[in-house]
């Protein structure tokens, strides 16, 4: 199989020490099941903002989880894509959580969620141009300096775009990664949702994504809605099993990237634990066959070397 060249450069220290395995988004409703069965998932991911209370069951559960599994912390509230300065108090809260649990990875979104001291609780879109690039780069720099580690930045799900965008999303992400040395979290569902909603090819997006920066993948199920003319409009609702089209796109991404930590996100209409575990197991199968393919490639290369 042809190995694609990776022209992007990145520093040798990974931002993530997550295993190249399938993980699950942790929900406290599943704690008893997880504790009882010690399931074979590669890691758990939590939302930082839900663990910023002083104590109580959330930290008791998280300490237990951290003892038995690699942990990824995913922030939803730093508002990296905002034009305003970062909320320093919130950044301090993130830092103390990251310091306390020393997770294998910390990730955030290319989006904004806070304006004028008010939190909107949604990942809102931004235009991709030199002005917004400067804001995002400054914010990522400040976060990485505060945390003392590179972060992973995630591509958003889009429902519209801005006339004032001068960069493609991929060029924008690549430029951020180059300037800040952050890494990327490729949300394959977001790519699929954005491509459907904005009429571009999801395959081209995956083929162009700077894979050498990718240290984690997200997968989730979307919801189907309709445009004003009845066309399909996808909502990134994290409310269902991962759909077939997304699995195909995931496989395409793995072919380019190789095996990498993959999270199943399920945040709305939370299923019983076995159903979430089944999704993770399914992702694990893709990772396994990709690992096998990598071994085969290495084997045939060694054979060629021997012959040569």
């Amino acid at each position: 199989m042809e190995t694609r060249s990776t022209p992007e450069r990145r520093s040798e220290y990974p931002a993530s020490s997550l295993p190249a395995r399938a993980g699950a988004g942790f929900k406290s409703a599943h704690f008893a099941d997880i504790e009882a069965a010690a399931p074979g998932v590669g890691f758990f991911e939590i939302h930082a903002e839900n663990y910023m209370g002083a104590g109580g069951p959330p930290h008791a559960q998280l300490m237990r989880l951290r003892r038995d599994f690699p942990l990824s912390i995913h922030g939803v509230g730093l508002s990296i894509g905002g034009a305003e300065p970062l909320d320093r108090e919130h950044l301090r809260r993130v830092k103390s959580l990251v310091d306390r649990y020393a997770p294998a990875a910390f990730s955030e979104h290319l989006a904004w969620s806070t304006q004028g001291g008010r939190f909107l609780n949604d990942l809102l879109p931004l235009p991709y141009n030199s002005t917004t690039l400067a804001h995002v780069v400054a914010h990522v720099d400040e976060i990485q300096e505060t945390l003392g580690r590179p972060i992973l930045l995630e591509n958003p799900a889009a429902y519209l775009r801005f006339q004032s965008s001068d960069y493609s999303e991929i060029d924008f992400l690549l430029e951020i990664a180059r300037r800040t040395d952050c890494r990327l979290l490729l949300d394959v569902t977001n790519a699929y949702v954005s491509a459907t909603n904005l009429d571009f090819s999801a395959e081209d997006y995956i083929d162009a994504f700077p894979m050498s920066y990718v240290e984690e993948i997200h997968l989730a199920g979307y919801a189907e809605d309709a445009d004003e003319i009845g066309d399909l409009l996808l909502i990134d609702a994290h409310c269902a099993p991962v759909q077939q089209g997304v699995w195909r796109l995931y496989d395409r991404a793995l072919t380019r990237r190789g095996p990498v930590a993959t999270l199943i996100e399920w945040d709305n209409d939370i299923p019983p634990w076995p159903l979430l575990l089944e999704q993770a197991t399914h992702a694990e199968q893709f990772l396994k066959s990709r690992r096998r393919a990598a071994v085969d490639d290495a084997g045939s290369e060694a054979l060629h070397d021997g012959v040569g």
């Binding site: 939302h47 839900n50 939803v76 979104h109 609780n121 409310c239």
Partner: peptide
């Protein structure tokens, strides 16, 4: 119903 006391969690998802 212990989870009720936890209150709302954040979401990085949209809704339909």
């Amino acid at each position: 119903k212990n989870d009720c006391a936890a209150g709302p969690g954040t979401s990085c998802a949209g809704t339909s």
